[in-house]
Write a protein that binds this DNA or RNA. Structure first.
Lengths: 261, 261
DNA sequence: CTACGTTTTAGGTGTGACCAATGGACCAAG
DNA sequence: CTTGGTCCATTGGTCACACCTAAAACGTAG
């Protein structure tokens, strides 16, 4: 177009890089639609449970092809913003992403990055004490019921290792729920689940560990019941830390790692 | 098909529910493909950056339609497991979900659930002190450089409010990075970003707040530099808590909420 | 009023065609 | 030898259309 020549007053002295452009992106049609719908959903324009127009209707309204519309809806579905049902009076129903959504993405990262069990425990050590403190502050009777139930399940001697670990996860998640903080609950759910799968097949949990764990849990549950935030924080700190120590000890003893498969 | 009649020896006495099936789910074809590929990626079967076969090639291999194949790839893309490039030698390149992935899903939840600023701060209060402790333990010189850079930006008096808040976020994220814990980094990134957007347009940040903040940051940075884990934990606890108090005060003073729009 | 088949409305899948972007090979002008 | 232009092959993006499948709603026989 010759506009570079126009920028220079002397034809021989070409200015080389007088202007810089940021690498620009041409959005895909499906992304445009998805972005628009996402924005509206997050803005609260539709109540939860509202049905978006059927695909064929969206095709008419947006003048896009059904393929494009479907791709946009699929994006929103994966992001947890809609739930798609088939059949008559089915369609895309607005939903708001909750803990499961966060938990699943955290799980993906943990598995993909092959995050070591030590790092997982370190993270749990970082956030669970504070979680217990909040639980002591905000717990309701329903929360207490869940905790008590998990305590019973853990104290059951005859359960299998898997049962024990499952109950263990349930208890930790119950504490998180009792904190009434959705973010923390999401984090803890994902963490506990990952720790669970990492801890299974590592038989370092013997009867002694189970006994100590059950006792610690009950002690913390008591603090939460008594709304003793400081005690809950302290005991949870100690409990999680001891667990870390136990795992690290075994890690060192069983230092024959299985890196490949 | 009349097989219920065949099960009964007398035609009139139909046995009603002789066999019970668990409600089974018919998975969608695209999900099957996506699940398979996801599993392989997470298992580390492909190195990061590896190109999956082109769509048309996958169509041949899987005997599925291109529509289905594309949907599967789109799912993986949204989950952060592949990055799709157009053009020659383009395609789906294997990727492993990192902090951005977690951060974006957390953002969705925060926006969608309309989580209050108080809850965000509460969450930050729960995890940042521990984060600072880890940073003091594991920080490298590169981490210190980032922290120092952020400290300078914050101390700059002449910046706009937005600049200040931006630098504030950078510093908090830098602390998280220094902890060398990818999970915590992801959490803090998402939290800080959300707090940033919530704090903007709330002019409670005056010169005094900025001065105190800059001072607190420097103090914590010093603790991290000196590998003093306890001091880092303590000072960060105090700093974040004071920030919460400041915000809550303003919240009460400006109790004229804007619920609708 | 219940039971069951039919209809209708939605999403799910398959096909084939064409558009758009990207990278490489090649060529021409300076 | 560098710069820019042209063309081509490859690969994802979009489209239109047809058909299958699932589920809710409806209507009717018993």
């Amino acid at each position: 177009m010759g506009w570079t020549a126009a920028a220079s007053d002397r034809p021989g002295a070409t200015i080389r890089d007088p202007v810089r452009l940021t690498p620009m992106q041409v959005p895909k049609a499906s992304d445009v639609l998805a972005d628009d719908l996402r924005e509206r959903i997050l803005r609260g324009e539709f109540r939860e449970g509202t049905a978006l127009p059927p695909e064929r209707e969206l095709v008419i309204q947006t003048q896009m092809s059904r393929t494009t519309v479907r791709e946009a809806l699929r994006i929103l579905e994966v992001q947890g913003l809609v739930r798609i049902k088939t059949g008559r009076s089915g369609g895309a129903f607005v939903q708001v992403p909750g803990e499961e959504s966060v938990a699943s993405s955290v799980s993906l990262m943990i598995r993909g990055r092959q995050i070591r069990l030590a790092a997982l425990l370190e993270t749990r050590e970082a956030i669970e004490p504070a979680c217990a403190r909040l639980a002591a502050r905000y717990r309701t009777d329903a929360d207490l019921a869940r905790l008590a139930h998990a305590d019973e399940a853990i104290a059951a001697e005859e359960g299998s290792l898997t049962d024990f670990l499952r109950a263990n996860v349930d208890w930790h998640v119950a504490v998180a729920v009792a904190s009434h903080n959705e973010l923390l609950t999401g984090f803890i759910s994902a963490l506990s689940e990952a720790i669970y799968t990492s801890t299974d097949n590592r038989g370092f949990v013997d009867a002694e560990v189970r006994r100590v764990t059950a006792q610690a849990h009950q002690s913390i549950t008591e603090a939460i019941r008594g709304r003793d935030a400081d005690a809950a924080f302290r005991r949870m700190t100690r409990h999680v830390h001891e667990y870390v120590q136990a795992v690290l000890e075994v890690e060192e003893r069983t230092a024959i790692d299985v890196p490949g498969s």
